[in-house]
Each structure stands twice: as C-alpha cells, then as structure tokens.
Amino acid sequence: MTRQDAFSALISVRDEFEATKFAVGHVLRLSDRDPSLVGQYVTGLSRSDLQTCQRNLEATYFLCLFAVFEGTLRNYSKFGRKRLKEPPMERLMDSIGRYRHISPQHMQNAHAVRILRNDMIHEHQQELRLTFHDCKSHLATYLSWLPPLW
C-alpha cells in the first residue's frame, strides 16, 4: 500500500460526502415544491426520512472517514511493521506515533478525532464537536507521517 492510496481513499469519502449532501439537499428543495415527489419514486419513503438523512449525513461520512483511517493504520501495522496483533486504536495510534516521531500536536489532533468517533459509536453522541472537514484534515495530517510506501 502507498500513502497516496490512503489519501486517495480519504479524498473519495470527502467527494462522496459533498455529492450526497448536494443530492439530498436538492431533492428536499424539489419536494418543498411538490410534497408528493418522494413517494412517486420510492414507496414508503417520506420527506422526513430524507430530512433525517440530511441531518445525519456529516456524522455518517465522518464514520466512513475514520474507517479509512483505521484501515490504513492496521494495514501499515501488519504489512509495514510486520505486527501480528491488532491492538485497540488508541494503542495503535500511539505506537505508530512513537515509531514515526509524529509531532505531539498532530497526535493530539488525531486522538481528538478518535475520541469523538468513540463517543458517537459507544455513547450514541449525535453532535459532531469537530466538523467533518476538521476531522479529515487531522487524520490526513497524521497519515502524512507514514512512509510513502510499505
């Protein structure tokens, strides 16, 4: 795997998020003018389902973003460092951080994103304390410390 592969995967999530945000917003605007629009195409789907989708979109794509980040670190640990164990993310991030001499500020930022992800998964927190784009930048900056190829 290359570091660029990881960046490309983050970019894909970002672009998909933007496209979906536009598409859902557009359909909602159209359905403002024609409330029967949604039901014409999908039986059982209501406008409020779309509103829920729009409300949760950022959180949904944030989780995709973090999954890409976690997948990259686990791939690097397994193939780049030949580690057989799969530690929890906190330990994995610290271990790679020490090994690659990642700056303390960049470590702290990436951990803030990890904690947010845990709160969403385990504490059912709905609100993002950081924006999707902040999270993307923090995770990408952490990944920039990985070698170009492993």
Binding site: F7, L10, I11, R14, H133, K136, S137, A140, T141, L143, S144
Partner: peptide, 11 residues
C-alpha cells in the same frame, strides 16, 4: 479548478 492543500486535504 480545485486548490487542494497537502497534507490537510483542505480544499
């Protein structure tokens, strides 16, 4: 045209 920063991926 996109202006994209690296490593932040800010755009």
């Amino acid at each position: 045209v996109d202006l994209e920063g690296w490593p932040t991926l800010n755009r």
